[in-house]
Computed example of a mutant assay.
Amino acid sequence: MNSGNNDILNIIENRALKNRARVAIGIREPTEKLISSVNAAHNGRYAHVVLVGDRSKIREFDTELDIIDTQNPEKMLASLLVSRKVDAAVRGTAHASGALANLKQSLKMESIQRLALLITASGNCFFLAPVGIDETGSIADRINFILNGARHISRFGIEPSVGILSGGRLGDLGRDSRVDRTLADADFITNRLHEKGINAKHYTILIEDAIKEANFIFAPDGISGNLIFRTLVFLGGGDGIGAPVLMDDYVFVDTSRVGGHYTKAIMLASALADISDTSEIDF
């Protein structure tokens, strides 16, 4: 397996070109930029793309892609996945709350965990979790989250290397009880991951060191993870490709409405669509 951060996008692109899965994307308030990026994914043979939204609005733009006409793309995306009429789905510009709520209801999921794929301004590609403010729980929950994320990264043929973050340096012990707890938790989690055969290291608060070696960064909690995502993508000149929901039997890639470009998100969904590999991976 290849774990080089700069190779991640190439590996995902090659998987997408091999799979060319049928990928649905939610469309609300289509724009020229949005439709152009979706056409690029289809014409680049990353996927056979299906647009899900108001046909009359979509037809105002230049596209010959299949369209599923609906006023509720959030519900339709989940329905298409459950019925296996598509291999994968991308949220696109469908409403986040509605899309994720329908996904949870349709698949009877108690909670949702997402694994974001990000690119720094210098072109370094890595996975980040958690990115939802409510996506962390107990230490056991976090360990399971990391194991699940590592399993999904392995589906690409990439060896996961996990960088665990905490709230301070080791020299900060004793300054604040909350920081002390994050340091202790990160040490415990790292040791448990080693017992599970996962390549993991506790980098304390030094994310700048973690990104040099790890391809999967795990933040202390969902709030800090969401702040890392927003700082990199909205302030730091980086890019958010998409955030697959961690599921074994279905592929759903969450996306931000801000960027407006979805070529790589569709590529990511198509690369994940070959879910048969999961049966051979056990952490």
Rank of each mutant, 00 (worst) to 15 (best):
L193I: 05
S177C: 03
S83R: 12
S270I: 02
A101P: 02
A94R: 11
I228Q: 01
V49N: 08
R45V: 00
T255L: 08
L100E: 14
G4Q: 15
I8S: 02
G174C: 11
T278C: 04
L128K: 02
H95V: 14
G157L: 03
S79W: 02
I211G: 07
A88D: 03
D54K: 15
F283Q: 01
G260V: 09
C125V: 15
P130E: 09
D277R: 11
F283M: 01
A101C: 05
M247S: 09
M1E: 06
N10Q: 13
T204A: 06
K57T: 14
A200E: 04
S79R: 14
Y46P: 04
S138F: 02
I223Y: 06
K264F: 03
S256K: 07
L268Q: 05
V90W: 02
G225S: 04
S138N: 07
G174F: 13
I12G: 03
S83L: 10
L173N: 07
G174Y: 07
Y203C: 03
K18H: 08
T263K: 14
R45Y: 12
S270D: 09
S161V: 13
F218V: 15
G4P: 02
G222M: 09
R15Q: 15
G92C: 09
A243D: 10
S106I: 06
I58E: 00
S79A: 15
A186F: 01
R151G: 04
I27S: 14
M76T: 15
N226R: 11
A94C: 11
A89K: 00
I207S: 12
T136I: 04
N19S: 15
A243G: 02
G44V: 00
A116D: 06
E13H: 09
F188D: 04
V258K: 07
I158T: 07
N226I: 03
I58G: 05
A243N: 08
G44S: 10
G92Y: 03
A96M: 08
A210S: 10
P130L: 07
D69N: 13
K57R: 14
E32L: 11
I281P: 10
D54S: 15
L51Q: 12
I25G: 09
T255D: 12
G167K: 05
S97K: 13
N148T: 13
I211E: 01
F126E: 06
E195L: 11
G149C: 08
E159S: 13
E13P: 02
K33A: 14
G237K: 07
E60C: 09
A101H: 13
S256A: 13
L118I: 12
V179C: 04
S279W: 05
D187I: 12
